[in-house]
Amino acid sequence: MSILIAIAGAILAIAALVALWRVIRGPSIVDRVIASDVLLTTLILVVGTEMVANGHTRTIPLMVVLAATAILGTVSVARFVTRPEGTDTATTAASAKPDSTGKELS
């Protein structure tokens, strides 16, 4: 049992580090948002895994709050990126374009 939980913890740690690498490196802001979403999901899984490992239920409200508020940052950044016409859509798209083309260079 504890060996299984330890293996799961190691896998979750690797997943969180890889997602963090994509947050840091991610060429465009959309990639960073997706990677931070994966990082938050991994965090929820870590909270649940820790409760399974230690046999308590004290952090279930933390899981509820994280699951309910994970949408806020993602949607706000997505709304910022796809701002409608008339505002600075051109500058946002133009600032995202060189990043996405620089992905192949690096």
Partner: peptide, 28 residues
């Protein structure tokens, strides 16, 4: 319970690997 936790962790790892390996934002 341990096997199910490992399954969830493997899904998270699959998402992380997909974040690194896939070429563009929609695939990720």
């Amino acid at each position: 319970a341990g096997v199910l936790v490992i399954g969830g962790a493997l899904l998270s790892l699959a998402a992380a690997v997909g974040l690194v390996r896939f070429p563009d934002a929609l695939s990720r």
